[in-house]
Design a protein around this nucleic acid. Sequence first.
DNA 1: CTGAAAGCGCTAACAT
DNA 2: ATGTTAGCGCTTTCAG
Lengths: 336, 336
Amino acid sequence: MTAPRPHRAGGRPTMVDVAADAGVSLKTVSRVVNGQPNVDPAMAARVTASAQKLGFHRNALAASLRSGSRDTIGFVSADLANTFYMTIAAAVSAVAVARGIQVIMASSEEDPATERALALDLCQRRVGGLIIVPSAADQAYLGAEVQRGTPVVFLDRPGRGIRADELLIDNRGGARAAVGELLAAGHERVAVLLDAPGIFTMAERRAGAEEAHADAGRALDERLVVSGLHTPQAAREAMTRLLALADPPTAVFCGNNRSTVGALEAVVSAGADVALSGFDDFELSRLVPRRIRIVDYDAGELGRQAAEVLLQRMADPGSPAPARVLLPTRLVDRGR
Amino acid sequence: MTAPRPHRAGGRPTMVDVAADAGVSLKTVSRVVNGQPNVDPAMAARVTASAQKLGFHRNALAASLRSGSRDTIGFVSADLANTFYMTIAAAVSAVAVARGIQVIMASSEEDPATERALALDLCQRRVGGLIIVPSAADQAYLGAEVQRGTPVVFLDRPGRGIRADELLIDNRGGARAAVGELLAAGHERVAVLLDAPGIFTMAERRAGAEEAHADAGRALDERLVVSGLHTPQAAREAMTRLLALADPPTAVFCGNNRSTVGALEAVVSAGADVALSGFDDFELSRLVPRRIRIVDYDAGELGRQAAEVLLQRMADPGSPAPARVLLPTRLVDRGR
DNA sequence: CTGAAAGCGCTAACAT
DNA sequence: ATGTTAGCGCTTTCAG
C-alpha cells in the first residue's frame, strides 16, 4: 500500500530513490554511481541527473559492508603531538589519500593498554590495514586479525608476537657513523647522552656508539654515558656535570634532539670547546650558534614507505614474507 | 538443507555463529556484546565464552549502518605536517577517543579542490561531524550535509557559505597588544612583517597592528610594512633592507614565527638595537640570543574546544545557534 | 546491456 | 528475560 517511498523526510536519498526518480532499476544506479561499464550513455545521463537533483551521495559504509572492501587504514602513533610522528602521519595520509583510502589516526601516548584498545577498535571498524608505532611489549593481541588477512606494518620500532613488516631507521648505523667520526677526529673522551635505555631506538643508538668505539679499538667510557634524559633541561644538567669533571669530555654524542639541545645549552654557556653531534634534526637547527653534526633521516620517507608496503599487502595478500626495512641516515652540518 | 553455517572458512565469525555456538538467539548475543541490561548472567556468561572461543569481534560498520549511529569524525587540516595543526589534531583525537569516537584525518594542502573532495568523501563515510581548517574560499558545498544534520566546526579560519561554529585565535587582539606595548615603550617607527595578506590570520594581525597605532593616535607607517613573506629567509632580507633605511625602525612586529626567526637573524647579524615582537611561539624560542616578546596561545586548547563543540552538536543537534569563539592570546618573554 | 532477488552483519520493533 | 522478524543501503549473483 505504501507509495514508492518518496525518500523520507529528514533522511538522505538512497539508490532506491534515485532509481525511482530515473525510472531505472537499483542495479543500474549502482553501475552508474560506481562508474562500471556496459551502461547505455543515455540511461547513465538520466541516472546522474536524478542523483544530482536529489542530492544523492552513496553510503560508503553500506557499500563496504556488502562488498567487503576496505577503504580505510589505521595509524596508531605513540605520540601524535611529536613532530617526528606527525611528519610520518602526514606522509602516510598523503600516500593513502592518493589511492582513495582514508586514514584513521590515534595515539597510544606510549601506553600499552591504549595501543591495544585502539588497534582492536580499528579492527572492529574493519580497516584494511594497520600501521603501528609499538609501545606495548607485545602485539600478539593482533594475531587473529593478521591471520584473517588484516596486514600490519610496524613503524620506528619492531613489533613482537606477530610476524609483520617493519620500517625502522638505521639507528645503529647512524650512531656508529657519528661517533666514529668523532673518534677519527682524535677525540679521546666522548660523552654519550641518552633517553631511557628501555626505548628501542636508544638501545640501538647506544649500541652504535659502542660499535664505533670497538671499530677504533676502544671502549665506551661508562663514566661519560648518561641515560634516562627526557628533557633538554635534564640533558643540560647532565652535560654541565660532565664538563665539571677533572677529565671532561672533548666531544658529546646525543641520542635525540632534546638531548642535543640541552647539551648545546650547557656547552655554550660554559664556553667549552666540545664537539657536538646528535641524532635527529630539529627546527631551527641551522640557527644554533655553533657548528654541530646531526644524524639526519627522512621521516616523511619512513611514512611513505610504510604506507606503500601496507597498501601493497592489502592489494596482494600473497606477497613475500614480511621484511625489516632499515632507512638510511646521513651526517649533516648544522649551526654556524 | 544447509547446516547452521559453521562460520565459513576464511571469514570472520558473526553474531549468528556465536548465537549458534551458545545456543541462544541472535538478539541475545547482540545484547550481551553491547552490554545491554536485562540479560540473565548465566546466559551472558555463555555468550561471552562462545564469543571468546570463536574469536568474535563485532563489525562496527554493520552496527552503524543499521543503527544510524556515527562514531567517527573527520578532521580536514590545511597542512597536517605543520606543527600548529598537528598539535590541534592530537588534541582533537584525544577528546574524541576518550568518548569512543575515532578521527579520520586528512590534509587539503591548502588546495580548495582537495578540501572539498576530502570533506565530501568523509560525508560519504558517514562521519558524525567535521572539523575543517578552511582553505577553500567557500564551504557552501557542505550545505546539504549540514542541513541533513552533520555538524561542522571551522578551525583557525572562518568558513563561508554555511553557518557553523568557528574556533579562532584572537589574532587581532594579540597583535594589538603586542604592537601597543611597543608604542607605549616609546617606539616611533615600528616595522611589521607579514605573510601573504590573503591569509585570514595575517589580515587580522595586520588589523590589530593598525588598531594599536590608532589607539596611540597614530597610523601605521606603510613604508615599514612588508607582506608576502613566506620564509625566514624572505623575512630576513626584508628586515635587513628596513634596517638600511635612513630612518630605520626601532622595533619590529612579526606576523608569524617564520618572520620572527628571519627578523631575528637580520637584527642579530646587523647588531641593531631593535625591539622584537612576534606572533606564534616556536621550538627553542627560549634559546634565541636576545629577549623577544611572543604572542602565545594554546593550540591544543583550540583543538580540544573544537572537538568539544562538535561532539556537543552531535549529541544534541538542537543546541543554540553557531557561534564564533575567540581563543585568548598572551604576551610572553622569550630569548635571553 | 538491464533487472530481480538475495544477503553483507548487525540492531530496532515488536512479540512472547 | 528472551526470541522473531524485518530491514539499514548497498553489491552480488544470476536471469533475461
